[in-house]
Each structure stands twice: as structure tokens, then as C-alpha cells.
Amino acid sequence: MINFQYVRATDVADAVHRIAADPAATFIAGGSNLIDLMKYDVERPSRLIDITRLPLKSVEETADGGLRIGALVSNSDLAYHPLIAARYPLLASAILAGASAQLRNMASTGGNLLQRTRCYYFYDTATPCNKREPGSGCSAISGLNRMHAILGTSEACIATHPSDMCVALAALDARVHAAGPAGARTIAFSDFHRLPENTPERDTNLQPNEIVTAVELPARGFAANYTYLKIRDRLSYAFALVSVAAALELQGDTIIEARLALGGVAHKPWRDPTAEAALREQAPSQATFNRAADVFLRDAKAFGHNAFKINLAHRAIVRALIQAAAGTPQSQSDKKIR
């Protein structure tokens, strides 16, 4: 870890002012990813701006029936919040599928959005990595890539976004509220994270001088028919190989709205409007779900070690849709997949 200065921001305007004054500074909230990356010399901020004392810790109902979640609400407070548990159980389930109880107590909502890939080469400063050192090359494409992406990759980067929470937020059409020198703005969740293309060093479309202030959920919560199905190498406290957030709205025996987002397969939570369209106006059935999974994975591309992910993702999508349609969401403590 290199030397750094430490300051506390007093309010959002002060935080924005301080980050604008020092381009090498970074915000710190939970620190559960940033401090780890600093220990590995992957992140080398000149200054940490501590935002943990800002008043961004509430969950409030919005006028249109949704919720506004302050950026500093901890992952555990969010997962166990009565309104989240009742109205957005998909989000609660996804959060509880991630990390450990200790880390969920530390990690913030905004920080979860901004966590960085767990690609081994990104962490290993002895190896080339375009995300860490632009232009140095990608070690994963021809290296060990069992955990890597199968959708939306580029020749520069095949890293995945590691969050579980963000997969549910993507499925729920959340919006991200940000503040910067030019004022406040709202970013659709699908526009928040980026694909690697030729600039894998940029994970999100948040500007370097902006701060996440809140995440807003629209009213539609899919509380009756949802599941978060996470497949990983051990049953808990491991990142997803493939995860599926599935949410359906049924009218009688017809799917009238469908959401499908995958984690562990791309540089961002992956949604596919065509696959979701293939589910709408259909009766829930294995054949329908198979077709949707075919569509979802039509452009999937593997890099050797991660070839198994394409088949695994297909099966996980079908299984998750069966769980969602049946109203039997995956338990995050009983790990049997039914």
C-alpha cells in the first residue's frame, strides 16, 4: 500500500468539491474491496475521501410507489429492510447470496455498484492487464479463464462484474442517482456499467468527479414470482460462476412481464430484451424457457476453461425460470436446487 492522505467529507457538496480538487483521490465507504486492492497495489489513490459520515443511510418511499435507497445503506441493512424483504425479495435474496455476513455489514449500496472485477490477473501486478494498465494486454484470454465472461467480451478484456446485488438491480430496472460538479443526474441501471470494448479500465459511466448518492427502485417488485439462483464452486462465500435473477409477472397461465439478468457471465449484469420478449405472452413451460435461454446465449463465446459456462448458464436460466414461475424461489440457506 502506498502513502495516502485521509480526509472526511462533511456533505455531498464537500465530497464532490474534494474529489474534483485531486484527480488521484478516491472515495471510501465500506472499503471491503478498495482496501484489499490497495494492499495489492492495484489501487493507488493519493487521498482517501471518507464519505461514511454523509447522510445517505435511509431507505425512503418515492411518490411513484418505489423506494430510494441511500448510497451508504449497508448491504445487510438493505437485505433485511422490511420494505425490501416484502416488496423486492429478489433484491434481498441476491444480496444474501453474496459475500459473508461480516462483509455485508461493511459494504455499502454505492460501493457494491463500484466494486471491481475479481479477475486474478487484474489483482496480480506482475502480469499484463488492460483494465489495470491500459495497453498492457489481457492475460486471461489465453490464460486461466474459468471464471471469465462469455458475453459482451472484447479483445481487450474478458473480465466479469462480481456483484450479486447488481444482477437483481438490473432485473428490477433500478436507477442510479449521482451528484457531480454539474449537479445531480439519474442513470438507468443498464447504462451504469459498461462493456469492456477498448476501454476496460472504465467499469462504469459514472464520471471520476461524481458520487453515487442513491439507488432508486421502481414500484414493480415481482414479489410473487422471482428467484435468484447462484451457481458457484462452494456453497457460500464465493463469487458466482453463473447467477440468474429471474422475475415474472403472470396473469393466469400467461407471462405478461419477464425479466432475466445474469451475473458471472459479462462485464456487467447481462440482460437481453429479445430473450425477455420470447417469454412474454407465453405460458410458462420448459419449452418456452429453453427457447428463451437459447436466445439469451445465442452470441455466447468461450475462451477455453470457461466453455462449461455456456451450458451451465443455459441450465441455470431454465431452472431459475421454473423456480420463478412456480413461486418457489431459491433459498439462500438451504442450497438444494429444486
Binding site: Y6, I28, G31, S32, I35, D36, L48, D50, T52, S100, A101, Q102, L103, N105, M106
Partner: peptide, 21 residues
């Protein structure tokens, strides 16, 4: 998890926490 302590009664990882914070 070996470094787990309670801060304000909640379990956290002390290795990923800065004392100054």
C-alpha cells in the same frame, strides 16, 4: 474471517477496516 471483531455491536472484518475511519 479470523480478524472478525464487533464495531458498534456488528461483526466486521478488522483487516479491511481503516482504524482512522
Amino acid at each position: 474471517g479470523a480478524c472478525t471483531v464487533l464495531v458498534e455491536g456488528r461483526r466486521i472484518l478488522s483487516c479491511l477496516s481503516l482504524a482512522v475511519m
